[in-house]
Amino acid sequence: MTDVAATSTGQAAPPPVGAARRPPGYTLTGAVTWGGLWVFVGGLLLAVASVLLASLTTQLADGWLPRGYTTRWYTQSWTTFGLGRLLVTTVEVGVAVVAVTLAVALPTAYVLARLTFPGRRLLLLLFLVPQVVPVMTYAVPLATLVYRLRLNDTLAGIVLVNLVPAIPFAVLVLLPFVEQVDPRIEQAARVCGATNRRVFVHILGPLLVPGLLAAGVLTLVRVVGQFELTFLVSGPDSQTLVVALYGAAVQAGELASQEINAMATVYMATTLTLLLVALRVVDPTAVAARDGRSSR
């Protein structure tokens, strides 16, 4: 058996002294990976650029670039679609949903992370299932419910339906953050004489700020981009930017395409601002790995 070890290491006999070199770091799989990545990034940038250019075109041309540039489509689409109103609605919905979501999700996540009690697994399931059920499955009956409550085409209705996916999502984002806070810190505070409320305000609150920020920002991004649910309950008086964008894009034949692209650009600017804010606050890879213990 020594022979095998000897021969197998012998097979890997290095080239003569001094001539041995490591193989180069470029491999076929590497090229394919990086190529794929660049195709993705390039396609994305080109697609965004074509929307941006189209919104600035005076006249549809058959060349690569437009013949002339103008910003008049922006003023025009501002009035046609009431972009100001749409932006206000979008912000209102976003802020309301984030506020309610955090207020409800934090205590829930705390209890689920810290305490064991009968029915805990069932509760966890209750917050996991909305992530794997198609939105339409609950959106359709939820929208009928909203109609019955006469909340359709109101801000309250939109906020209500958006809370349904937002709360369980925020609970799942917050869970690892709460788990990271060593329970002994809380016990130490209790031993020092702090009441429950004080532990929450003075100890847990500050320690959970990163988690709350992460959950809040991610929820906001999702609400602003949330289409299917909002679409079902919104009416002419209560639309968010995405829903109006979809509505405009669907009737593309009847509107000037520059106008639609101007609106798309406004939408893009809004979401990208959000993304920039989000990246300042959240490390995306740390949140993506839900089993946060392994990544931190």
Partner: peptide
Amino acid sequence: LDPTTGTISLDGRRIDRLPPEQRG
């Protein structure tokens, strides 16, 4: 790790430029 300078030999054979899996 790759050495900045210097040599390593095992049984008289240079191994310092080999990848780890070929060093035995």
